[in-house]
Amino acid sequence: MDFTETERAMDASASLVARESDPSRVDDLQKNSFYNSKENLIIAVGLWNMKRGTKTKVIRSDLGCVYFTCKHSDKCKFDLHASSHGGGMWGVHKLKEHSCQADLRRAKKIKTHSKVVAAYVANRIRDDGEVIKPKSIMAELVRDFGIKIKYDVALRARNLEMEMIYGRVDDSFLLLPRYLYALREANPGTLIGLEVDVDCRFKHLFVALAASISPFYFHLRPVIVVDGTHLKGKNSGILFVAVAKDGNEAVFPLAIGVGPIENDESWKWFMSHLRQACGEPENLLVVSDAHVSIANAVKSEFPNATYGICYYHLLNKIKGYGPGVAELFYQAAYAYKQSDYTRVMSTWLL
Results as ranks from 00 to 15, higher is better:
H204V: 02
C200S: 13
Y330L: 13
P188D: 02
D74G: 11
C70M: 07
K55H: 08
I213D: 04
R52P: 00
S346K: 15
G46H: 08
Y312Q: 09
G279V: 09
F252A: 02
V243N: 07
N36M: 10
A14R: 14
S266M: 01
F68V: 01
S24Y: 08
D27S: 14
L328Q: 15
F202I: 00
A9N: 15
Q338A: 14
L183H: 06
G53N: 02
V292T: 14
K115N: 11
S136T: 12
G88M: 05
P260A: 12
L104P: 02
R178T: 14
P253I: 00
G233I: 01
T4W: 09
Q101K: 15
N187C: 03
A102M: 15
V153D: 05
I132L: 12
V196D: 00
D22P: 12
A18E: 08
A186M: 04
E7N: 11
A326F: 06
F302A: 06
M345T: 09
T112S: 15
V298D: 08
M89K: 14
I309M: 13
A157Y: 04
R143E: 13
P23G: 11
T69L: 07
Y341L: 14
D152W: 09
N283H: 14
M164I: 09
Y181N: 11
I256W: 03
A242F: 03
V207Q: 03
V344F: 04
C76T: 05
Q331D: 11
F173G: 12
R126W: 09
W348Q: 05
I213T: 11
I43Q: 13
A107V: 10
D79V: 03
L314K: 04
L220S: 07
V225K: 02
D62V: 04
L180V: 01
C65G: 08
G322A: 07
V325H: 10
Y35A: 07
Y151C: 00
K133F: 06
Y341W: 11
V92M: 03
L239A: 10
F202K: 05
S83R: 13
G257F: 01
